Simulated assay, not measured.
Amino acid sequence: MASVFKVYEREFSLIPDEKMWPSWYGARLKPNSAMRRKASGRPVSTRIWNEMDAIERAEKRCGLCCGEGHTRRGCSNASHSDP
Score class of each variant (00 low, 15 high):
Asn50Cys: 15
Arg42Ile: 11
Ser23Val: 08
Ser3Asn: 08
Arg28Tyr: 09
Gly74Gln: 07
Ala54Met: 13
Lys60Ile: 04
Ile55Thr: 01
Tyr25Gln: 07
Arg36Gln: 05
Glu68Thr: 13
Phe5Ile: 06
Tyr8Gly: 00
Gly69Asn: 06
Val4Met: 02
Gly69Ser: 04
Ser76Met: 09
Asn77Thr: 14
Glu68Gln: 14
Arg37Pro: 03
Pro83Thr: 03
Trp49Lys: 01
Gly41Ser: 08
Glu59Ala: 14
Asn50His: 15
Tyr8Glu: 03
Ser33Ile: 04
Met1Ala: 12
Gly69Cys: 08
Gly26Pro: 14
Ala2His: 04
Lys60Asp: 04
Leu29Phe: 07
Trp49Thr: 01
Gly26Thr: 05
Ser33Glu: 08
Arg10Cys: 05
Asp17Ser: 15
Ser81Asn: 08
Val7Asn: 09
Ser33Ala: 07
Pro16Ala: 10
Val7Trp: 04
Gly26Trp: 02
Ser76Arg: 09
Ala78Tyr: 05
Ala39Ile: 12
Glu59Phe: 12
Glu9Pro: 01
Thr71Cys: 14
Val44Ile: 14
Glu51Cys: 10
Arg36Ile: 01
Ile48Pro: 05
Lys30Tyr: 09
Glu56His: 00
Ala27Gly: 05
Ala27Met: 09
Gly41Leu: 11
Arg57Gly: 11
Arg61Tyr: 03
Ala78Trp: 03
Ala58Phe: 10
Arg73Ile: 12
Pro43His: 00
Pro43Arg: 02
Arg28Thr: 15
Glu18Thr: 13
Ala39Ser: 11
Ala27Phe: 06
Ser45Arg: 15
Ala27Val: 11
Glu56Asp: 15
Glu68Cys: 08
Asp17Tyr: 12
Met52Pro: 03
Trp21Thr: 04
Cys65Leu: 06
Cys75Lys: 02
Met35Leu: 13
Asp17Val: 07
Glu9Val: 12
Lys19Pro: 00
Glu59Cys: 10
Trp24Glu: 04
Asp82Thr: 14
Pro83Met: 08
Thr71Asn: 14
Ile55Lys: 12
Ile15Arg: 12
Cys62Glu: 07
Gly26Ala: 00
Glu59Gly: 12
Glu56Ala: 02
Arg36Val: 05
Glu68Ser: 11
Gly69Pro: 15
Cys66Ser: 11
Ala78Ile: 13
Val44Gly: 10
Gly67Ile: 01
Tyr25Val: 03
Ser40Ala: 10
Glu18Asp: 09
Ser81Tyr: 11
Arg61Asn: 04
Pro83Ala: 05
Lys30Phe: 08
Asp53Gln: 13
Pro31Leu: 08
Leu64Asp: 00
Trp21Ser: 09
Ala2Ile: 06
Ser23Cys: 06
Cys66Tyr: 07
Trp24Val: 01
Met1Val: 10
Glu68Lys: 15
Ala78Thr: 11
Arg47Asn: 14
Ser3Trp: 03
Arg61His: 11
Gly41Ile: 07
Arg37His: 09
Asp82Ser: 14
Cys65Val: 03
His80Asp: 07
Lys6Cys: 02
Gly69Glu: 07
Gly74Met: 11
Ala78Val: 15
Pro43Gly: 00
Ala58Thr: 12
Asp17Cys: 12
Ile15Ser: 10
Ala27Tyr: 01
Phe12Asp: 06
Gly41Trp: 05
Ser3His: 07
Phe12Glu: 04
Lys30Gly: 06
Trp21His: 15
Ser45Lys: 14
Cys66Trp: 05
Ala34Ser: 11
Glu59Tyr: 08
